[in-house]
Design a protein around this nucleic acid. Structure first.
Lengths: 193, 193
DNA sequence: CACGGCATGTAACAGGTTACATGATTAT
DNA sequence: ATAATCATGTAACCTGTTACATGCCGTG
């Protein structure tokens, strides 16, 4: 039920079209949720049927018509209840770590490549976040408006995660080097002793 | 296609039953993947049909029969190809951060509770990992066998992540306190200015 | 004899991905 | 012209969750 709630959050302040909400998932909402336009349209339709949102068609002269959705009282109630309920913990699912764990089967070479890319991506994402921080949050936290503090916290989460990821990747690179080191006797590959 | 591959990794060293693989997801595999027994059984059935695994029924005297699965050559080929391909990046989906972002709607009280729980859970998980480290990986990394280095890396990932989570939670708590502080004029709630 | 662990599944549903499809407007 | 962006959707499929279901064994 999370997608519904994210959409309701997006609609809480201003009416938006499915297209705009999709764009939000590529920007602000993207720090903590992702959804494709197909998902958004499908969900909005269901939510309309269930009375959580209302829909009106807005003709806009030259451009194609758009369907503007607004949150209803029922929608607001549902959202409030969801926000107050303790959050679910999405289960861990990391393809990268599966590949690490299976490293004895693939051999260390592909692993080194994966981890290297992961390191670079983590660093790049971190730098991206830092740039956003400088541009949009230059003032000290205490001086931010309340809503801005909350948005900042979601950015901050991404930064700390990516930092941890980059740190792990460099550790992993070191350890991998010791596996790949050629000056060792070759023993038969076995995953468990 | 990741679930298939994780199952193949689990079968790479020794034949296992669906039940045993399910248990693996609660232990070793649990650091980087999760799946329910329903998923495991369903997937094994499909993989059998597609010739990635072979199945034989093992009667074991008193206890109920079990179906032992083993990886086939086709399975090994598929797994190797998958391990070598660059890993997919699962999209971010964090219910907690959605609730943070929607904090102006719910008010800070429930948020404080969510973040507090998150902090405690992160710390607890971290301590759990540290205990496992002491018990199962007491020797210096350089002295570990290759396969053990890889397993250690998956543990290490969990540790660094949880550490980052805990750090974020304490930052968040501080910032939240400044929102909740009662010695401020009350302004009308608005998510965006 | 009740309960937890072993061992296996089916069915329905919810959520997410991929592919396909349409048509207008605006910028190069 | 043609490509990008705006704006909307359908259909099929895959993956994950929840609920239901069965039956044996060993321990207290």
């Amino acid at each position: 039920m999370s997608l519904r709630s994210v959409i309701l959050v997006a609609l809480a302040d201003e009416d938006r079209s499915g297209y705009e909400i999709t764009k939000d998932f590529e920007t602000v909402l993207g720090y903590f949720w992702s959804a494709s336009h197909q998902q958004v349209y499908r969900e909005l339709k269901k939510m309309d049927e269930e009375g959580l949102v209302a829909c009106r068609v807005e003709p806009q002269g030259s451009k194609p018509d758009r369907k503007l959705y607004s949150i209803t009282d029922r929608g607001r109630e549902d959202l409030l209840a969801w926000l107050q309920a303790p959050p679910a913990h999405p289960p861990v699912r990391s393809p990268l770590l599966v590949k690490v764990y299976g490293g004895m089967i693939s051999g260390p070479e592909p692993l080194e490549a994966h981890i290297d890319t992961f390191y670079r991506e983590s660093e790049a994402a971190l730098n991206g976040f830092k740039a956003i921080e400088e541009e949009h949050y230059p003032e000290p936290v205490e001086e931010m408006e309340d809503w801005k503090k909350l948005a900042y916290l979601t950015l901050r989460f991404g930064m700390l995660r990516r930092q941890a990821d980059a740190r792990w990747a460099s550790e992993a690179r070191e350890i991998l080097r010791s596996i790949m080191a050629p000056d060792r006797e070759k023993s038969p590959k076995k995953n468990k002793p």
